[in-house]
Design a protein around this nucleic acid. Structure first.
Length: 249
DNA sequence: AAGATCCGCAACCGCTCCGAC
DNA sequence: GGTCGGAGCGGTTGCGGATCT
C-alpha cells in the first residue's frame, strides 16, 4: 500500500501521561506510526478504534488513529488542489447543507470533511471577511451566486475548450462517474433552483419579484472589475479538471 | 539577511448520537 | 429507562512554511 505523501516526521510530538506507565502520544504522526497503523488495518480492518489503538501498540487515542486514517492514510484519499468543479460543488452543497462537512464530503469522493472545512474557512470565509460581511449573509451569497459562481463556470468552460496538457488526463474521482452525476451547463444565469437559498432572487433568472440584485452593485461590492473578480482571480485554480458534463448540481 | 506577519493544514477537543447491556 | 463506551461531527488550535517588510 502506498503511503500518502507529506507524512510529517516529527520529534516534537508531545506525550501525555495517564497513570504512571501509559503515555499517550499527541501531535504530528511519525512515519513509523503511520506504517504501524496501516499494517494493523490491513490485517484487522478498520473500526473499533479504541481497541485498535490499544492492540496495535500505538500510544495514541482511538480518536487520533481514526482521524489519521480517515483524513490521511486511507488509500482513496484524494489530495491536491481543490478543482474548479469541486469549488462549485462545495459552494452549492454548503448552501444546501450548511456546515455539515461530512455530508458535503460525501459528494466529493476522496475529499475529507476536514479538508473541505479547512478550504471553506481559509478561502471562502477569507473572501467574506474582505467583503466585510458574514459568510452566511445574504449579501455574501448574492455576490457568490451572481459573480463568483458564474465566473467559475466561465473558467470551467474556458478550460474545457483548451487543449489538454500532454499528461492532462481528466481526473475523476473514484465513484464519481459521469453517469451518476450529470449536469449540463446552463447558458442562463444560475437560478434559485440550482442554489435553493431562501431569500435569494436572480436578476434575469427564473425567479421574479422584489429584492433583486443588480450586477453593477455587486461588482462594486465585491471589487469586481472588467478583468474579473479580483479576489477569485487569485484563487488557486490549478489541478486537473473533470469533464464539465461530470459536474453535479 | 533577518525578523515579522500571514496562511494553510494536520491534529486535537468537546460535544452529541447511537447501540449494547 | 439508565448507563457506558465507541464512533462521528464541527469548531478550534498550533505548527511550519511562505511571504512581506
Amino acid at each position: 500500500m502506498e503511503i500518502n505523501k507529506g507524512i510529517v516526521c516529527s520529534t516534537s510530538t508531545a506525550d501525555i501521561k495517564i497513570g504512571e506507565e501509559t503515555e499517550l502520544r499527541r501531535g504530528p504522526w511519525t512515519i513509523e506510526e503511520d506504517i504501524t497503523l496501516i499494517n494493523y488495518i490491513e490485517n484487522h480492518g478498520e473500526g473499533r478504534w479504541n481497541s485498535l489503538a490499544r492492540s496495535s501498540g500505538l500510544n495514541r487515542t482511538g480518536k487520533s488513529c481514526r482521524l489519521r486514517w480517515l483524513n490521511y492514510l486511507r488509500p482513496d484519499v484524494r489530495r491536491g488542489n481543490i478543482t474548479l468543479e469541486e469549488q462549485l460543488l462545495i459552494l452549492e452543497l454548503h448552501s444546501r447543507f450548511g456546515n455539515r462537512w461530512s455530508k458535503i464530503a460525501q459528494h466529493l469522493p476522496g475529499r475529507t470533511d476536514n479538508e473541505i472545512k479547512n478550504y471553506w474557512r481559509t478561502r471562502v470565509q477569507k473572501h467574506a471577511k474582505q467583503l466585510k460581511c458574514d459568510v452566511n449573509s445574504k449579501q455574501f451569497k448574492d455576490v457568490m451566486y451572481h459573480l463568483w459562481i458564474p465566473r467559475l463556470l466561465e473558467r470551467i468552460q474556458t478550460n474545457s475548450t483548451v487543449p489538454e496538457p500532454v499528461n492532462g488526463q481528466h481526473e475523476q474521482s473514484p465513484g464519481c462517474s459521469s453517469s451518476d452525476s450529470v449536469v449540463t451547463r446552463s447558458s442562463s444565469p444560475l437560478t434559485s433552483d440550482c442554489f435553493p437559498v431562501e431569500g435569494f432572487n436572480v436578476v434575469g433568472g427564473a425567479s421574479t419579484g422584489g429584492d433583486q440584485i443588480h450586477e453593477a452593485e455587486y461588482r462594486s461590492l465585491a471589487g469586481y472589475s472588467d478583468r474579473g473578480l479580483l479576489d477569485f482571480e487569485e484563487w488557486d485554480m490549478g489541478g486537473n479538471l473533470w469533464n464539465v458534463e461530470d459536474i453535479w448540481f
